[in-house]
């Protein structure tokens, strides 16, 4: 497995990176950790003329934790995310989810930005970011703009990001209440058969607010407003959960693959969501 030849660029700042993207148009691809892109290149399923390595772009690094919001640079790795205690306190679901991504070696190099920007429905972070109502900063030749995670994904590998833009930062509101990231997979290193991210707040024994997102059950991550709505104002008992599951099932569109047929995936999605809700509720 040998990739085709390409030219390599390692810009030292964001402006240079954007300049290279503008210069080479659709021949250029940015690379972060590369563990999605490089296997595709080695299988010659992706061909890249100019590879723009973002490792030296300092603007893309760093984690800030403020009272109401955290921000994460696109080049922050899963391992850095996991080991950041302040982040784990402010947005604990991030660590819980990141530990379920790939394996240790891949987490050392795999970045949050790469995971959210790639548009691969198998990635865990996109659904999680939708659940958290994160916002992505995209910077292009015309300057920066902010796009909500919930409006970023259009289809398989198709996102709101234009070819000449770079996803630079992710802003995540600090959440209160309970959280859970549940993922069923065949083994470590596999994508999800189904995964669910759930945030809940509790007030007077009832669900005060909820957010639900599902992973690898459609060609895009699925933030299910209907599933969340089915929980709000209720006691999070069996009936409410069943309604949330039913609402979620109406929003997903899984495809059959080696992990199993559609009916199985739907069933597992329901079970996983039920478990995630129960766990989040127990922590709320």
């Amino acid at each position: 497995m040998i990739p085709s030849a390409f030219e390599y660029h390692r810009p030292g700042d964001l402006a240079s990176a954007l300049g290279i993207l503008s210069a080479y148009g659709d021949e250029a691809r940015v690379i972060a950790g590369g563990h999605s892109l490089i296997p595709m290149m080695k299988l010659r399923m992706a061909s890249v003329g100019h590879l723009v390595d973002l490792q030296s772009v300092a603007e893309l690094r760093g984690i800030t934790v403020a009272e109401r919001e955290v921000t994460i640079g696109a080049m922050v790795t899963q391992a850095e995310l996991i080991s950041h205690d302040g982040l784990a306190k402010a947005v604990p679901i991030l660590r819980e989810a990141a530990l379920q991504i790939a394996d240790p070696q891949v987490r050392y190099v795999g970045t949050v930005g790469g995971n959210v920007a790639n548009g691969d429905p198998g990635n865990d972070m996109p659904g999680l970011m939708q659940c958290l109502d994160a916002r992505f900063t995209l910077v292009g030749p015309g300057g920066p703009r902010e796009v909500p995670a919930r409006a970023f994904y259009h289809g398989l590998y198709a996102t709101e990001r234009a070819e000449d833009e770079i996803l630079t930062r992710i802003a995540i509101p600090v959440h209160a209440g309970g959280h859970a990231y549940e993922k069923q997979k065949r083994k470590i290193g596999d994508y999800a058969t189904a995964a669910a991210a759930v945030l809940l707040t509790k007030s007077g024994g009832k669900v005060a607010s909820a957010s639900v997102a599902m992973t690898n059950l459609s060609d895009v991550p699925v933030w299910s407003e209907a599933a969340a709505a089915a929980l709000v104002g209720r006691d999070c008992g069996a009936e409410a959960v069943a309604d949330a599951v039913a609402a979620m099932l109406a929003d997903i569109d899984p495809q059959a693959d080696n992990r199993g047929p559609i009916a199985f995936k739907k069933h597992v999605a329901g079970v996983i969501l039920g478990r995630a809700i129960a766990r989040a509720w127990s922590r709320a």
Binding site: L51, Q105, Y108
Partner: peptide
């Protein structure tokens, strides 16, 4: 992971790293 080496203090899979990186 048969290709695992330590790079800049991290375990990496050297089959999925370009030498340029």
């Amino acid at each position: 992971g048969a290709c695992t080496v330590d790079m800049n203090g991290r375990s990496v899979k050297a089959c999925t790293v370009f030498v340029a990186q």
